[in-house]
Amino acid sequence: MQQFLESFLPAGPLVVFVFSIIPLMIILVYALFAIWLERKVAGHMQDRLGPMRTGWHGWAQTIADLLKMIQKEDIVPAKADRFLFKLAPFIAFAASYGAFVAIPLSSGYIGSMIDVGVFYIVAITSLLSVSIIMAGWASNNKWSLLGAMRTAAQTVSYEVPTVVTILSVIIVTGTLNLMEVTEMQTGNAFLGFLPSWLIFHSPFMVIAFGLFFIATLAEAHRVPFDLPESESELVGGYQTEYSGMRWGLFMLTEYADMLLLSLVGVTLFFGGWNSPFGSFMEGPLWGAFWMLLKGMILVFVMMWLRWTLPRLRVDQLMNLCWKYLIPLSFVNLVLIALWEMIF
């Protein structure tokens, strides 16, 4: 990819800039689409229509909202900690954007071929909770602080099952580099026709994926685990005092996070940029298409769950994590390790 860019751009910082801005472009376009999709999905699941006025079936609604948010006054509460208050949304977005560096978007594009890819993603996404605590604390608002405290508890708890399920996948792959993980899943070996994705590797991988998906749902603060925001009880949680484009950045972060965790899930369990039809429709561009399509399907499932399930109570949230997810993920880890030893 970098060589391809260097073939028509002067070498140096410009190539690096264009190279590193590609995921940002994808995130921005995806966010416009995903927010619209979320509204349409929400509307139709409730037998409504959702946005209908801006363009065909309201496709430009997010753009209109964006224009509105840019025009809004930038309000910082008088008693807030100005520096932290202004810094928090940027750290939040930087955390989720920074994680995209280790994700192979296609066979021809990965931000950095670091060998600790998954580990790096797990590490940098926990910066997100730092930024949320920062936002909640700096707002000097009780709702915000409550939301931030819930985030701290939630993220710290749910990182355990996430990491353990990722670890169980790593036992199978033997590498942390996501590009290598994806390359391992190329081909249609299982049972003759199934793609050799890790989800088909063993029945325990299905359980691992289930645990991983639930845990990432909590990591992305999506319903039913949206306690940090929980607009019906905490007004807006850590977002209460934010308005305009700063709030927009938090929103962008939420959607970028959804995509990020979906892409990690896709890479670990569903063959990343591999085509489901073997060598049919393969190549760097088709790879990007398959990667994003699979990611969008998982994002859609997240939206689907959002409009199906009610929010958990704080104690239920902790119950679910510590009493069910963590023991199950450890048992699953041991079982996958045994499977690997036997076969």
Binding site: V41, G43, H44, M45, Q46, D47, R48, L49, M52
Partner: peptide, 8 residues
């Protein structure tokens, strides 16, 4: 419900 006709 996603595929039923909306009442709007």
């Amino acid at each position: 419900h996603l595929f039923t006709r909306s009442v709007t």
